[in-house]
């Protein structure tokens, strides 16, 4: 399954500056492994201890994968995967 992955500014050091890159897989985990194969180091920025890093949001099309299976979320041919750093913080 071929998908297009949108890469946020902070991770473009791994993609040679590209804003979006192709990847393959039938689940988000497979897509991330495929990304890692071509853009070494990116997986460690997305996954920690076998789950998605809390500082990052990943969407398959319009759906935040947190609500659709996390790394096991299904992806289909032609889907758009969007990676966005969470915008958050606070006084503590």
């Amino acid at each position: 399954m071929a998908v297009t992955v949108s890469i946020p500014t902070i991770l473009r050091t791994h993609t040679g500056g590209e804003k979006s890159v192709p990847a393959a897989g039938s689940t988000l985990a497979e897509v991330i492994d495929d990304l890692e194969a071509n853009h070494g180091g990116i997986k460690g920025r997305l996954v920690k201890d076998g789950t998605l890093h809390r500082f990052v949001n990943v969407y398959v099309n319009d759906e935040d994968v947190r609500f659709s299976g996390g790394l096991e979320a299904k992806v289909a041919d032609g889907d758009n995967v969007t990676i966005l750093p969470a915008v958050a913080g606070g006084a503590r």
């Binding site: 902070i10 500082f55 969470a86 915008v87 913080g89 606070g90």
Partner: peptide
């Protein structure tokens, strides 16, 4: 990217720094 601190000074907290991911 702005936010308010409502009981402390306008200085980034450890949480702010941990989340900050727009280098520009």
């Amino acid at each position: 990217i702005y936010h308010s601190h409502t009981a402390t000074e306008a200085y980034p907290s450890r949480t702010d720094v941990a989340y900050a991911s727009e280098p520009f």
